[in-house]
């Protein structure tokens, strides 16, 4: 009969099965089965089997995929307000970041996805991104002068590197290892687990923990699929997602520590620079958003820093 029919939610991501995001999704599937007494199930497609992040968001809009994890940087093409997360130095600390994500700002930004036929369901931790350089020891922005830095394809990332006086060079992630090795670029930027898992540490002498951006991962669902669930099913799903978010946060922290230990062991010099000159360098860039929606979010986020 119709009531007994199992609800299968198909969920894709671009990372491999060792990544904290995948493990958290597996956890989500278990919790959902538990809450729903086996009525609901999540099938996970890892390793970009169903497309890259942008393509999977389109699949959510189309309705052939139920959920995905996507960087806030990718989703800004669909929900421009999300761009605020890609701006450098908007959070003062990890605690500040989670206070924002769990508070009104985080929820409002998740709600903004509705107009794009999406449902914002929560955030995963993606840590903070920092520079790594093949040959250049960087202590302050001026050490980046004229250096070719690989950035993601995003105008925000380009402008940020320019604010640090580097030359932003967009190169696809797949070509980056070779590009670093052959000197097409002098450095790149990423969070510790990605720096480690991509093996870029093998050819980078310095990892400069300046933590310029903290772009969270967003769990998004297809409005088409989500609206077809009963209220009870939506509730189960939300609870399962909450559980998986808490689980992932823990895994992420462990992963970050392990990654840093491993790259140090491999001979990478990890530099902890004074962040002040970096923060000062991006103030003009922040000012360009004054009076816009993003500017409003920036002010709201700044006001939520209790450590100030």
């Amino acid at each position: 009969g119709g009531e007994q029919q199992k609800v299968v939610l198909r969920m894709g991501h671009t990372l491999d099965t060792e990544h904290s995001v995948h493990k958290a999704m597996v956890h989500m599937a278990e919790r959902l089965q538990h809450y729903s007494n086996g009525e609901m199930d999540v099938v996970i497609y890892p390793s970009a089997q169903l497309g890259n992040e942008r393509e999977m968001v389109e699949l959510l809009q189309i309705g052939s995929l139920a959920m995905t994890k996507v960087s806030a940087a990718t989703i800004e093409g669909f929900v421009p307000e999300m761009k605020v997360f890609s701006l450098p130095y908007i959070f003062q600390s990890r605690e500040h970041r989670w206070r924002v994500l769990n508070g009104d700002v985080g929820q409002n930004l998740l709600n903004e996805t509705q107009k794009a036929h999406l449902v914002g369901l929560g955030y995963y931790d993606a840590g903070s991104r920092s520079f790594y350089m093949t040959d250049t020891r960087v202590k302050e922005p001026k050490d980046l002068t004229g250096k070719k830095i690989r950035v993601m394809e995003s105008q925000t990332a380009v402008k940020m590197v320019q604010a640090f006086s580097g030359a932003a060079t967009p190169i696809s992630f797949g070509e980056l290892y070779a590009a670093l090795q052959q000197g097409v670029v002098d450095g790149a930027e990423n969070n510790p687990p990605s720096f480690y898992l991509s093996r870029h540490y093998e050819i980078s002498k310095y990892y400069i923990l300046n933590e310029h951006t903290s772009v969270p991962d967003v769990i998004v669902g297809s409005a088409h699929v989500y609206n077809n669930l009963t209220e009870q099913q939506q509730l189960w799903l939300k609870k399962a997602i909450q559980d998986s978010v808490e689980y992932q946060k823990q895994l992420w922290l462990e992963g970050e520590l392990q990654a840093l230990a491993e790259v140090k062991k491999a001979g990478v010099e990890v530099i902890y620079p004074d962040k002040t000159p970096f923060i000062n360098a991006v103030q003009d860039f922040h000012a360009t958003f004054k009076g816009t929606r993003i500017g409003q979010y920036l002010e709201q986020i700044a006001s939520m820093n209790e450590g100030k």
Binding site: E58, L59, I62, G63, S64, S172, G174, E175, H224
Partner: peptide, 26 residues
Amino acid sequence: MLFTIDFAPAVTTVAQRLAGGVNSFV
């Protein structure tokens, strides 16, 4: 696709792959 996905999302997904499959730096 029509065995597991409704008509409109199915054909839209194929259309997306036609363009997306080619949208590659490599």
